[in-house]
Amino acid sequence: MIKRRKKIIRPRLSVNIAGMELRNPVMPASGTFGYGEEYAPYLDLNSLGAIVTKGLSLHPKAGNRTPRICETVSGMLNAIGLQNVGVDVFIKHKMPFLEQFDTPVIVNFFGNTQDEYAAVAERLDAISGVRALEMNISCPNVKHGGIVFGTDPKAISSVVRQVRKKTSKPLIVKLTPNVTDIQVTAKAAEDAGADALSLINTLTGMSVDVKTRRPRLANTIGGLSGPAIRPIAVRLVHQVVQAVSIPVIGIGGITRAMDALEFLIVGAKAVQVGTANFVDPHAMATILNELEDFCLAEGIDDINDLIGSLEV
């Protein structure tokens, strides 16, 4: 007779970010998961650490012309143009669906002026079902010659400070990788009052159709995502973790638990899964299963023991 093994103790996967207790460190990346309802037929939203919505602006946004996406080597370029229903429609028509779930809702938002950022944050702050805000600062500041907020430490400082005054909810600032020194921009966000950072947003890229000699995106340039960017993302998360004391959420080309683990080991407290959702609507469920299996196989009782355990 086979001897019964002792009862398997499931590893603890819960993590704490900026006062939020998440049941596990896996959540979707903004813009790859709609408003949650698109993936509900395929995935138990109650199994996720959090739900992160598509980015919202003060007014609805049409987005760019098509083609908006194209595939590249192990990745994709997108220039959707932040098409979204606007914060008011979101609160009225999308929030009730998300409130059915026992999963924290993190609402991503953006603006093209400081005042727009502040106005959206203020509206979301009033909604009890919104657990935290994630601020996309990879947008051009139209009042200052279109320079991207997230590439200028002074602009980051100023806009994050203004938003900070409008909300008492946890404020996550999502950093752009398209900077010379990410430690500087990370520090600027931390000093201005961010409770956590998430990175990376997409890397700017471009692809050309050699027969037509036209860019493959109507917008000419777009954001690169997918496995192709993962080593860059891991490096940037590693650098940011060294520079700040607030929690960091790692994003960039995660398709499997092994990928997520790289981010956790360099010090991310949680991860966001983006492009992989498009490829496989069950991607996050698979990652969670694999994460548990990894912990069991490696004798890790608590995922927190892995976080920041990088040996250099």
């Binding site: 790859t32 998961f33 709609g34 698109e38 993936y39 037929p41 395929y42 987005g63 098509t66 083609p67 908006r68 996406i69 194209c70 994709m76 997108n78 959707i80 098409q83 492009t275 959702n277 498009f278 609507p281």
Partner: peptide
């Protein structure tokens, strides 16, 4: 249309 997800999330395939 070019589409990444097929379920209405990527917004790549709009007309």
């Amino acid at each position: 249309a070019l589409m990444a997800c097929g379920v209405g999330a990527c917004l790549g395939c709009v007309v």
